[in-house]
Amino acid sequence: MFRTSDGGPIQMYEDPYDPIVSYSSPMAGWLYARHPKIPDYWTAVAEEPTRDRAEETETGQGRRSKKTNRKARVSDDSVRTALYRIRNADGELLYVGISAKPPQRWGQHAADKDWWPEVAGLSIEWFDSKTEALAMEARAIRTERPRHNIQHNGTDVPPKV
Rank of each mutant, 00 (worst) to 15 (best):
F2M: 10
R3F: 03
R3M: 05
G7C: 09
Q11H: 08
M12I: 09
M12C: 11
D15M: 07
Y17V: 10
P19R: 06
S22A: 14
Y23K: 15
S25Y: 08
P26Y: 04
G29V: 13
W30L: 09
L31I: 15
H35F: 10
P39F: 06
Y41K: 10
W42E: 06
T43A: 13
A44C: 14
A44H: 07
V45T: 15
A46S: 15
A46P: 09
E47K: 15
E48A: 13
T50Q: 15
T50N: 14
R53C: 07
E56Y: 14
E56D: 11
E58P: 05
G60A: 15
Q61I: 15
R63P: 02
R63W: 04
R64Q: 07
S65E: 11
K66Y: 06
K66L: 13
K66N: 07
T68I: 11
N69S: 14
R70S: 12
R70D: 03
K71I: 12
K71P: 01
A72Q: 09
S75C: 06
D77W: 04
T81L: 13
A82P: 00
I86E: 00
N88S: 11
D90P: 02
G91L: 05
G91A: 04
E92M: 03
L93K: 00
Y95L: 01
P102A: 04
P103M: 06
R105I: 12
R105C: 06
Q108L: 14
H109N: 08
A110N: 13
A110C: 11
A111D: 08
D112Q: 12
D112E: 13
D112K: 15
D114I: 04
E118D: 08
A120N: 12
L122D: 01
L122S: 05
S123F: 00
I124L: 11
I124H: 01
I124N: 06
W126M: 15
F127C: 11
S129Q: 02
K130W: 07
A133M: 10
L134W: 03
L134Q: 13
A135W: 00
A138P: 01
I141N: 00
T143M: 02
T143F: 01
E144S: 05
E144D: 06
R145C: 00
R147M: 02
R147W: 00
H148A: 08
H148G: 06
Q151P: 01
H152N: 15
G154V: 04
D156G: 15
V157G: 01
P158A: 05
P159S: 11
